[in-house]
Amino acid sequence: MAIDTALSSSLEQAELETFPPAHRGRPGDLGESGENREQDDRRPPLQNARRERLQYAARRVLRRPGLVVAILLLLFVIVSAAFPALFTHFDPYATAPADKLKAPSLSHLFGTDEIGRDLFTRVLYGSTLTIQATLAAVAIAVVVGLALGVVTGFLGGWVDLVLMRLVDVMLAIPRLLLALVIVTALGFGTVPISIAVAVGIIPGFARITRAEVLKVKNLPYIEAARTGGASWARVLLRHILPNSWGPVFVLAVLDFGVAILAISALSFLGFGAAPPAAEWGTLISNGRNFLITSPWLSLLPGLFVGLVVFSLNHISKSLEELQR
């Protein structure tokens, strides 16, 4: 849900940047929005403009069917991760030895595993763990990365030098291996792997935020705000941050995909939640033992992860194009 609101607000922002206020809306849409304005004359003008912007953003999204499908799939995953019981009447842990290793059918969409548990249900409940871990990882990375980027870009000098060299070092250790080091130190489970994945994606956020802050820092309106008597803290929070986070947001969506892949890889390797709970990676890893007789056990969850990541990448790419 958070993604959805953030998405529309970013689209709004993207559109704001692309079109100066005088020419807001596409030329062909002028008549239509003009009618709207007459209808809603009693509304305050600001609210009216916001509605128009939203409608415009929605139209631009709807013109891309691929993007709509990707957003729908993502919504399904998010809703089913929050309320898995809505989409299945099976219990993820209830065993039914008589129904073991059943091939996918209408009653068992993804088939059943070696002790008769419904795999589709297991995947949905796995979404809960995986999405939680992913959200945690990206949230940590965004917060720490933004903080690092703002501090280094804003302060400059030796703080910048030291912190950015640290970021360079983190980039010089392959992400997966850095994650392995952290998992070794912290132990196994959903929390350690999300921290491990977060640490791996912090450098990207730090660098991109720093670059944006450096770009924004010297613009005339910052000087104007300062001259107007605003404190540095206010300038930072009200002017620099809101104007730097566009590219950071695109990277965050892209890194959702990266984080899902990394978390699945770590749980596939056996560092995830303890059984019988299972993240997507754990399910794929379990199914591996039955690859000869029941390939769907690992291939269907794998395909599911692939589709989710593909949707995220597609949304991120479309956002980048819409922002341009």
Partner: peptide, 8 residues
């Protein structure tokens, strides 16, 4: 290619 999990 970049979206598929390597283990899949």
């Amino acid at each position: 290619g970049v979206s598929l999990p390597p283990f899949f």
